[in-house]
Nucleic acid binder design. Structure first.
Length: 643
DNA sequence: GAGCACTGC
C-alpha cells in the first residue's frame, strides 16, 4: 500500500487555515506532497466549486503534476484536472484544478487582467524566484484588493518564507514536513586546488569503499564535466580486480537529447553509474538510484551588466539552499551520503539563497510588462525585490530606443504589440518592423531560431572538421551576409526535406538539434498567428519570396538593426571591433561565419563575456543604414568618443 | 580559434 503523505496528517488543520486566510504562505520540503495534495484539499473543502490555478516554473513539472493528480482522482486528464503550457492545452471550461507554467498565468493576467476564472491561485516553487513568479506576486498583491473572493497560496520549499509573508502584509506561514531519508554529509578539512582531480578521487573512493548505489556529481560547466568523464573512463581500466565496473556519464543541457537519455537507462549487471552534471540535475531532471552526491560547490550564473549591455557567464559559489537541494538528491529513495568538496567554514560563508533573477538580468522585459499592465511609476511599483535604479533606467532607455515607450515613458501602440508577443522586446521590435515592411515571412524563420536554445550544437573536437565541411555550403550560400542569413538557410533547407527521417538524418550530420528544430517550426507558426491577430486591419502582402536574395538579405539585416542598434561595433586595426555604444573591445566568436571576414561595421544579437568579450550571431552592416535607422544614436554616441 | 548554467510565453 502506498505510504501516506505527511501532508495528509495535517489536512484538517490546513483546511481551517485556508478557510480563514485569503493569503497563506506554505513551506513544505520536497516529498511533502504539497503540489499534488493542496489543490485537492481546496477542491474538497469547497465541495468541488472552486477553480484552482497552480503555477510551476517548468513545463514538464506542470504536465507531470496534472497527470498524477488526474490519476489520483480517477478522472480523465483535461476534464476536472488539466494543464496549460505553451503549445499544449489539456484543460477545458470545466477544469477545476489547472496546472500551468507561471509564464502562462502571466499571459492570462495580461490579456484578461483580473483572472476572474479562478477562485484560488497557488504559486508553487516560489523560492526559485524566477522573474515571472516575482512579477506575479506583485500583480496578485494588487489584484487581491479588488477580487475579494480570490485566495492566494504561495508555496516554497525553503525557509525563506518571512520575505513572502512580509510582502503580503504579515500573511500566515504554515509548515509541513517533508518525507525523505537521512543523508550523511561530509566536508573537506582544507580547500581543494583542482576540482576535477578532487571529484575524480572522491568518486573512486566511494566506488571502492561504499555499498552499491549510483553517484551524482555537480560541477559548474561542460568543460570540467567532460574532463572528469574522460579521466574516469581512463582510470576504469586500471581499477583493482574484483571491483564492479564504473560507468561515467555527462549531463548538461547542451548535450544532444539522445546522450541525455543515457543517464536514465539502467546499467546492466553489477555496475555502478556515476553521472557528472550541471545544476540541470538539481531541479529539472531527477535520476533514480542515486545514493551518493558529490557537490563541487559552484555553478555558472549569467549576470547582466546594464552599463555595458553585456552578459557575463561567471562561475560562482552556490548558496546554502542549493547545497541542501543537491544533498537531498542522495536521499530520495534510501539513506545516502553527500560529499561536499569544500570546507565547513566555506559553507558557513555561503549566502542562504541565490540572488533573485530579477536582480541580475536585463529588466527590459519585466518593465515593458509593467507598462502594458498600466503601471506608470515602475520605480515605485510593489516589487518583491526591486532591481537597482540604474538597471531600471537602462531598461527604460532601451525600450525608448525601440520606440516601445514615448518621451513621457508611456507605452506606445507599438510597445503594446511588442509586449504581447512571446519574445524578448528586441526581437519583438525586429519582427514588427519586418511585418510592416512586408518581409515577416523571411524574418520569422530567423527570429524563431533565435528564441530556441541549443539549436546549433558544438561538434566534438574530433568531429569538428567533418561537421564544418557539411555546414560550409550553407555559409557560402549566405554570400558573406552573416550568421542570421546562415540560420535562415538551415531552416529553409530543413523545411524542403520531405520526410522526418530525412530531416533527422540531415540534422544529425550538421549537428543541429532535431527536436529544437521542430520547436522552431512551432514557434514560427505561433508567432505568425499572433502577428496576424494583432494587426488585422493593417494587412500587407509579404514580398519575401519576390525579392532577389541579396536585396532580401540586406532588408533582413536592416530589420534586425531596428531592434539591435545598440549592438553594433566598428572595426579597429586588426580583427577586433569596438562597440559604438560603450566603446568596449569585442571579438567575433570563432563559431561565427564572420570570424575571419573583415568588414567595417558589424551588428550582433548577443554580446557575452566568457574567456573574452564575444559577439555572436554577427552580420555585416553598412554605416549608412545605421545613419538612416538611428541617426540620433550614432551622432550622440560618437560625438564624445575617440573615433 | 571558442567550447555557455537554467527556464518561460
Amino acid at each position: 500500500m502506498m505510504q501516506r503523505l505527511p501532508i495528509c496528517e495535517v489536512q484538517t488543520d490546513l483546511e481551517k487555515k485556508f478557510t480563514k486566510n485569503r493569503i497563506t504562505i506554505l513551506v513544505g520540503e520536497t516529498g511533502s506532497g504539497k503540489s499534488t495534495q493542496i489543490p485537492q484539499f481546496i477542491l474538497r473543502m469547497s465541495n468541488g466549486t472552486e477553480k484552482i490555478a497552480v503555477t510551476q516554473p517548468r513545463r514538464v513539472a506542470a504536465i507531470n503534476l496534472a497527470k498524477r493528480v488526474a490519476e489520483e482522482t480517477k478522472t480523465t486528464l483535461g476534464q476536472d484536472v488539466g494543464y496549460t503550457v505553451r503549445f499544449q492545452n489539456m484543460s477545458g471550461p470545466n477544469t477545476k484544478i489547472k496546472y500551468l507554467t507561471d509564464g502562462m498565468l502571466l499571459r492570462e493576467l495580461l490579456l484578461r487582467t483580473s483572472l476572474d476564472q479562478y477562485t484560488t491561485i497557488i504559486l508553487d516553487e516560489a523560492h526559485e524566484r524566477t522573474i515571472i513568479t516575482d512579477l506575479l506576486m506583485g500583480f496578485l498583491k494588487t489584484l487581491l484588493q479588488t477580487r475579494v473572493n480570490l485566495r492566494l497560496i504561495v508555496m516554497s520549499a525553503t525557509l525563506d518564507a518571512d520575505r513572502f509573508s512580509r510582502f503580503f502584509d504579515g500573511a500566515e506561514v504554515l509548515y509541513v514536513q517533508g518525507r525523505r531519508f537521512p543523508v550523511q554529509r561530509y566536508f573537506l578539512s582544507k580547500p581543494v586546488e583542482d576540482i576535477v582531480d578532487a571529484t575524480v578521487r572522491t568518486a573512486i573512493q566511494i566506488h571502492s569503499s561504499e555499498p552499491m548505489g549510483d553517484i551524482l556529481a555537480f560541477l559548474a560547466g561542460q568543460e570540467d564535466i567532460d574532463k572528469v568523464v574522460d579521466t574516469l573512463n581512463d582510470m576504469i581500466r586500471s581499477l583493482p580486480v574484483g571491483l564492479p565496473e564504473l560507468v561515467a556519464l555527462p549531463l548538461y543541457a547542451a548535450l544532444p537529447p539522445q546522450q541525455q537519455l543515457k543517464v536514465f537507462e539502467k546499467v546492466p549487471g553489477n555496475k555502478r553509474k556515476i553521472i557528472i552534471a550541471t545544476n540541470i540535475a538539481e531541479t529539472s531532471l531527477t535520476i533514480s538510484g542515486v545514493r551518493y552526491v558529490i557537490d563541487g560547490g559552484t555553478q555558472k550564473v549569467k549576470v547582466w551588466r546594464h552599463d555595458l549591455g553585456l552578459d557575463s557567464l561567471l562561475t560562482m559559489p552556490i548558496s546554502k539552499s542549493n547545497a541542501a537541494q543537491r544533498m537531498g538528491r542522495a536521499g530520495r529513495e534510501a539513506a545516502g551520503k553527500c560529499y561536499r568538496l569544500y570546507t565547513e567554514t566555506d559553507y558557513g560563508g555561503l549566502r542562504s539563497q541565490m540572488e533573485p533573477e530579477v536582480e541580475r538580468c536585463d529588466v527590459s522585459f519585466p518593465i515593458l510588462t509593467l507598462k502594458l499592465a498600466g503601471v506608470t511609476d515602475v520605480l515605485g511599483w510593489n516589487w518583491l525585490e526591486r532591481p537597482s535604479k540604474a538597471a531600471i533606467m537602462s531598461a527604460l532607455m532601451q525600450l525608448y530606443t525601440l520606440k516601445a515607450l514615448d518621451d513621457e515613458g508611456k507605452i506606445t501602440e507599438l510597445g503594446k504589440k511588442m509586449a504581447v508577443l512571446p519574445l524578448p522586446p528586441h526581437l519583438s521590435a525586429v519582427l514588427l518592423d519586418a511585418y510592416q515592411k512586408g518581409i515577416a515571412d523571411a524574418v520569422l524563420d530567423i527570429v524563431s531560431c533565435l528564441s530556441i536554445e541549443n539549436l546549433i550544437m558544438n561538434p566534438h573536437p574530433d568531429k569538428r572538421d567533418e561537421v564544418n565541411g557539411k555546414r560550409l555550403p550553407f555559409i557560402t550560400a549566405s554570400g558573406g551576409m552573416g550568421d542570421l542569413v546562415v540560420l535562415r538557410n538551415y531552416v529553409q533547407h530543413y523545411r524542403s526535406l520531405l520526410s522526418s527521417e530525412e530531416k533527422k538524418e540531415w540534422c544529425k550530420e550538421l549537428h543541429i538539434n532535431y527536436r529544437a528544430m521542430s520547436n522552431v517550426e512551432d514557434v514560427r507558426k505561433q508567432l505568425e498567428s499572433y502577428l496576424k491577430a494583432g494587426s488585422a486591419n493593417s494587412k500587407s502582402e509579404d514580398k519575401s519570396a519576390k525579392l532577389g536574395p541579396s536585396i532580401l538579405n540586406e532588408q533582413i539585416i536592416q530589420c534586425f538593426l531596428t531592434g539591435f542598434v545598440s549592438n553594433t561595433a566598428l572595426r579597429l586595426p586588426g580583427k577586433t571591433y569596438r562597440t559604438i555604444a560603450g566603446g568596449q573591445n569585442i571579438n567575433v566568436h570563432p563559431s561565427s561565419s564572420m570570424f575571419d571576414k573583415k568588414v567595417d561595421a558589424i551588428m550582433y544579437t548577443e554580446y557575452m563575456f566568457t574567456t573574452k568579450a564575444y559577439a555572436r550571431n554577427v552580420s555585416p552592416i553598412d554605416l549608412q543604414w545605421l545613419q538612416q535607422i538611428a541617426p540620433h544614436f550614432l551622432s550622440r554616441r560618437t560625438a564624445g568618443s575617440d573615433y
